[in-house]
Design a protein around this nucleic acid. Structure first.
Lengths: 344, 344
DNA sequence: ATGAAAGCGCTAACAT
DNA sequence: ATGTTAGCGCTTTCAT
């Protein structure tokens, strides 16, 4: 086990002081007017022996950790997994590491996780926050920590966030269903007070109202366990035989919904048209393929990391807060086309 | 921005030495025969003011970080996402945080990531290693770092690993196809020298050989970009019209394969039977549902973290290395049943 | 039973 | 232009 070299070892080997080495290594040689010759000599030596600064000691001293805390709802959800992946890439390219975790939408767990991140001195926070975490985040911000929210925001918390236009997305998709001639359109979603879920529900209702149709909403308790989603959807669909279309509010609900549709042998779209929020392989590969609202994952990740890096790099608090709202794309497929139904 | 309290602040407020506080906080009060009364007083005070030790300083001093580095192939792949999720849970419960990243099966990137983890003083490594990383891992182990591999192992590297019985899995699944009467069975996989991919290919070949059938293998270069997987599969399937079954070697290949099958309007299983490694929603929801080899994700995660925690807690090097091989489950569905074909 | 002090590796204010 | 030195907050040896 080869001993790790320290900056003192370098300094001693070269018969100079560790300050000089530190300055050179931190690119302050010019500023400190250290001779070009010395700089080269040090750099060469450091490279030869493969010296690496101890970032722990550095962090202890500077108060910076170069770590960003990322909190998603559930890393095994494809939406969050792909966002996390992209954020990770961008962060690494900018010299930051990511510590991540899944909140499960659990307030208490999230509080503990924030505590842990704080404890670890992360430099910034990226999170899809659960409800009830307002105070904790506010206190974080008050302590000068950069916080960027995504996927949803907290109305009571004053910070940057990146979202999509949820209300318009569901409004637009519901209108599409109406245009196709569907009249009995249900909306199946998680019961949630989160901004994005409320907006999605609202968009759906708005479209129905404009067309004098009656909303049929099924709210399901958020749960990681599929059984507790599939069960309620099953009884809901069994009970509402008069529905001619169903709109699933998230990819998770959508996937579970499709399982129910299969197990009840419901024909899509002739018995029931289907639309889901989010667009993943499951929807593309279903028969018929499912009409879906695709979120601009790359754009979301790009914006999130850009905003955070900005905050990290500009020490002044005077920056304006940004609320970025991105557009989604409605991809119309066989599951919501009346013509397709007629063909059968 | 409230100042963080240090152990000195605590000591001063209580008019005792920081040593005593440190001992009490680290549960060494008994051993150091500190009076029960003092212990209670300190604990109470610490709790009241909400003091939290600075883990950075602690790490710098102890050399431990309580962080585990997790390197997967791609966190947005459902297999790795679900494993990561489970490992994360278990790790947190045991007081460890996870820093994760995706290797993309890229040796150079992985080397840099290892360097970074090392630099960050992670206490242990969990990885699904790419090829060509043998030396780096060996050097890690030589330096006394606990390393646990999963999903695949490196024959030249002597360390613990958790795998599944890849060879038997594909052998068994291929036999199933043969039993169903399929004679022209292709195996579509990533071209790779990784242990698990080699074993999968071997299992397939073994089953064919035993039945005097001819293997038809299509190897695809590993790539994150779907186009570069879909393209080759498309031309492969177009070229081999005589196939009556296809076996996809990973979930990623399987998902892409299904897209090709759809776009070519191939009927499953009447035109072509399908089996895929890994079992996810996409396969369950396809019409007909796809026969799949389900990996025991929870068991894998459990074993990985258990083995690593063991290594972390027993300082002695004398522990035996463990190679744990877990069983998979072949879930037979409509995509590989001759009867279903007959019905059409 | 408790405390003083050294030191982990680094940065930066302050000499020289 | 380069060096001395004081911490960052903690653990731990050695004294008392």
């Amino acid at each position: 086990m080869k001993k790790k070299l320290s900056i003192v070892d370098i300094a001693n080997s070269l018969n100079i002081s560790k300050t000089t080495v530190s300055f050179i290594l931190n690119g302050r040689a010019q500023e400190k007017r250290i001779s070009e010759e010395l700089v080269q000599r040090v750099l060469k030596f450091v490279d030869e022996v493969g010296y690496k600064a101890n970032s722990l000691a550095k962090s202890l001293r500077t108060g910076k950790s170069n770590i960003i805390g990322l909190m998603v709802e559930d890393i095994s959800n494809p939406f969050f997994a792909s966002i996390a992946r992209l954020i990770e890439d961008r962060a690494y390219k900018n010299g930051y590491k990511i510590i991540y975790c899944s909140t499960d939408n659990d307030t208490k767990k999230t509080q503990e996780l924030i505590e842990m991140f704080r404890d670890r001195h992360v430099d910034g926070y990226i999170m899809a926050p659960p409800e009830g975490i307002e105070e904790d985040i506010t206190s974080l911000i008050k302590d000068g920590m950069p916080v960027v929210l995504f996927d949803r925001h907290l109305p009571k918390v004053n910070t940057d966030y990146i979202e999509i236009d949820n209300l318009f997305s569901t409004y637009n998709a519901t209108r599409h269903l109406v245009e196709q001639g569907y009249k009995n359109i249900a909306f199946v979603t998680f019961s949630s007070q989160q901004s994005q879920m409320k907006a999605r529900l609202e968009g759906y209702k708005k479209a129905l109202k404009e067309n004098s149709l009656k909303p049929v909403v099924k709210e399901i308790l958020f749960n990681q366990n599929e059984e507790f989603i599939i069960g309620p959807i099953t009884s809901f669909l069994k009970k509402h035989k008069d529905l001619d279309a169903v709109f699933f509010g998230t990819n998770h609900v959508g996937t579970c919904g499709l399982k129910v549709i299969n197990s009840l042998s419901i024909k899509v779209p002739s018995d029931l048209a289907v639309i889901s929020f989010d667009d993943y392989d499951v929807f593309k590969l279903f028969s018929p393929p499912v009409t879906a609202i695709a979120q601009p994952v790359e754009e979301i990740a790009d914006n999130v990391i850009t905003v955070l890096l900005n905050k990290l790099n500009s020490p002044l608090q005077h920056q304006k807060l940004q609320s970025i709202i991105l557009k989604t794309e409605l991809t119309i497929r066989g599951s919501s086309r009346m013509q397709a139904a007629a063909q059968l």
